[in-house]
Structure formats: C-alpha cells, structure tokens
Write a protein that binds this DNA or RNA. Structure first.
Lengths: 213, 213
DNA sequence: CCCTTGCTAGTCAAACTTGACTACCTGCCC
DNA sequence: GGGCAGGTAGTCAAGTTTGACTAGCAAGGG
C-alpha cells in the first residue's frame, strides 16, 4: 500500500527524494487516510531500492538546508510492480478504504478503457463477497441465531452495498468523459513543482475529528 | 484493536489460554475482517501480561493433546483498558471497519444506555468529519480544481454518509429493545464452551473473494 | 550580530504483524 | 500394531509501522 503510493509519487517526478514524496502524499491528503508516516516512507524507499524496484542515486547535499538527500528513480521492474499494485488496488474489495483511495489518486496512469474494466471487475468482486457473507449469516436456522453478532455481518453487507453504489457512480462519470487518463493529452498535475506552494497544506491543523489514538 | 478483541475474549471466559481466544475470534468471524492471526494473538497476550493487563497463570499441560498451555485472566487494570478500548471503538469514526466490528461484537458488555450514548457520539463524530472533508475539497475556487483527486474526497463523503445511515439504524434497533445488554439477565453466549463445536467454522474455506494478497 | 523559530531531510529503537514452522497427542483405518 | 490424518497449542525470524528524536541551515526580530 505504502509502496503503491511511494512508487506513484516517485514516478510522477521522474526522480525524487524522500522529502518530496512525503510532500506529495500530504498534497494528496494521504496523511489523513493512510498510514504514510515519514518512517514508513523512508523505509519503503530503502526497501524497494534494495529489491531493485527503485534505483538510488547518491546525491548532492540539499539545496535548501538540511542534510544531504538521496534521490530515487523507478526502474523497469519497479514500473511493473507499480502497475500490478495499482490494478489490484482498483479491483479488489478488501474493505480497506485507504487502498482504494490510493488507487483513485493514481488511476489516471492507466488508460481509460483499462480503468473502466478494472472498476467493473471491482463491482463483481463486491457482489461475490456480499453473497459469501449473506450465506454465512442467514443459515437455514434463520437469522437472529447469532444475536448481536449478526450486526457485524449486517454492517459488512451495508458497506458492500454502499461501496457498490459508489463504484457504479464512478464508472459512469469516467465513461462520461471525466478526467484525463494516460495518452489523452495534457495530464493533470498531481505533484508539486519544486518550490510551489501547497494550497491544501494543513499546517498543524489537527487530524480530522473522530480520529482517536 | 487486537488487544480489544483479546481482552474481550479472555474476559468472557474468565480465564482462557491462547488457543481458546483464537477459537473465539474465529467464531466471531474475526479472522475474516481483522488482522487477528495466531502470531498476533499470542504476542498480544504476552505483551499485555507484561504490562499488567492480564495475569498469566503457569498452567498444566493440555488436557487434549498438544503442548502445555498458559492461562490468562484479566486484571482490574486490564478491565479498565478493555472498557476504554471498547468505548473508543464504538465512538470514533476512523473509517477502519474492523475496529467498529470488534466494538459491535463486544458492545453488550456495556449497558444499553451507555451503548446508545456512545453511538450517538459516533453519529456526531461522523458529521463533524464530513464537514471537515467537504470544507477541504470544495474551496472557494470551486470543485474540479482537484481533478480526479476530488474522487477520493467524494468517496470519503459517501462512506461517511453511508456509515451514518447504518449507525442510525443500529441505534433504532437497540432503542427498540434488540439484544441483551449487561445487567439484563441471561447474556448471549458469545464464546464456545469447552468442547462445543463451532457451527460457523469455516474449515479451510478460502477467504472471501476479492481478498488479495 | 546573535539567537530563536521553523523548515528541510532524515534516523532509530521499540513495538507490532506476518506466515511459516514445530511438537505433541488422539483416533481410527487397515 | 503401524502409521497417518487432523486437531491442539504455540514459537520464531523476517519484515513493517510507529512515534519520537536529530541535525543543518535560513530568515528575521531585536
């Protein structure tokens, strides 16, 4: 998950250091909905460099104060992994909203037809899962047998239905021509240029209410 | 999270060993919707014993084959922590469905009035969060400024709305007298007695479709 | 001119999670 | 009467995540 985000960020820059990635993720709001803390980001970069998904350039000291920095570039192998993760994020329904969010942020790296196909597969995935849950909790003995435990299943089913509905909406928007996908001309700029100010910076605004811990 | 589940399971038994906890969690379906693998469970037990939330009895070898086992009991401090976690799980909206699921499974350890109060707070929490997100993504420049990134926010808002709707339903069911809460007589048996067969055992049925990894 | 604030860039230990693995015993089929 | 399938109970190393910490430099106030 973190790998998907990091690969996506590095890829858009062509070449990036950790702090830049960190900033992009904040720009996307990822610090609010994913577990993308500094530690995880740097760890992911190093790990992926070790595994050959990224190439690490030993690089000059910072131009703007601070310690020297290492720049990374996505290798061919890393690109493959990136698309694999991206496709999976859009397709699979594992009720982890952060994975889908990451996929949404990066889906325009695919072409429109493929994005649509993946989302259709996502729909089928949700339906299948719904069927599995309802089988499990409405056994022939009738419901209620589970007492309040049944609420858990009811919650899952409700989530699945709501997720399906939303996905349907998205498919329609994309089919209707929304957004700019790969190979459709001027792409949407999803990263900050060097020195550009982040209009959505949250500063030290506290995390969204309801967050505990 | 895992701590909440483990504390809840041990508490219901009064005294339990790791394997028993593992079985209860399967009974609740937790292996499907939470990251409660054996390793995590045993780790949590040991950790919490070290921290004084559980008391570990050094105990006799198994009665039914297998290595000897350690039994645990929740301490007073552990009970406090348990209720703290439980209240938090029901109240806070951090879009992690597994936390809520755990809370639902254990909510009957509270009394009805408190459960209702917590769920009302959950509703407010969701609304507040929704407000925060919509502020963030419909700035005065108008929407669309974010391009496809806006879809992420739209997804959050949709999830929040759907979560609120479901919570409202649950509140009504509980207010209407559903389920048996603490202090209301014969509690629902949420654990398996020794030797009882799990009617919902999944055997080696594979995890729900759509699960990747 | 110096000193505090704040941004840049990153490290690190401790905690947690994962998935595969071990070892023991029972029942039962042949 | 052997052996193997399957349940019981748990360990362990490798990997990941967390949250707090470090250290360098710039800008600006007094």
């Amino acid at each position: 998950m973190i790998r998907l985000l990091v690969l996506g960020a590095v890829r858009q820059h062509g070449r990036a250091h950790g702090y830049q990635v960190r900033n992009d993720l904040e720009y996307w709001g990822a610090h609010e909905w994913s577990n993308a803390k500094p530690g995880s980001i740097y760890h992911a970069l190093k790990q992926m460099a070790k595994q050959g998904l990224l190439h690490a350039h030993e690089v000059a000291p910072s131009t703007a104060g601070g310690p020297p920095r290492t720049e990374y570039e996505v290798t061919e192998q890393g690109t493959e992994e990136y698309f694999r993760l991206l496709r999976e994020a859009l397709t699979s329904y594992d009720q982890k909203p952060d994975v889908l969010s990451a996929g949404l942020g990066l889906m325009v790296d695919l072409d429109r037809a493929e994005a649509l196909a993946l989302l259709e597969r996502r729909m089928r995935s949700i339906e299948e899962w719904r069927r599995a849950v309802t089988e499990y909790y409405v056994p022939e003995d009738g419901p209620g047998q589970l007492g309040h435990i049944g609420e858990i299943m009811d919650f899952w089913v409700h989530s699945a239905d709501s997720g399906a509905e939303w996905t349907r909406g998205l498919i329609e928007r994309i089919r209707g021509g929304a957004y700019t996908f790969a190979g459709e001309g001027e792409p949407f700029v999803g990263v900050l240029a060097d020195g550009e100010e982040n209009p959505f910076a949250t500063g030290d605004r506290e995390p969204h209410p309801g967050d505990a811990h």
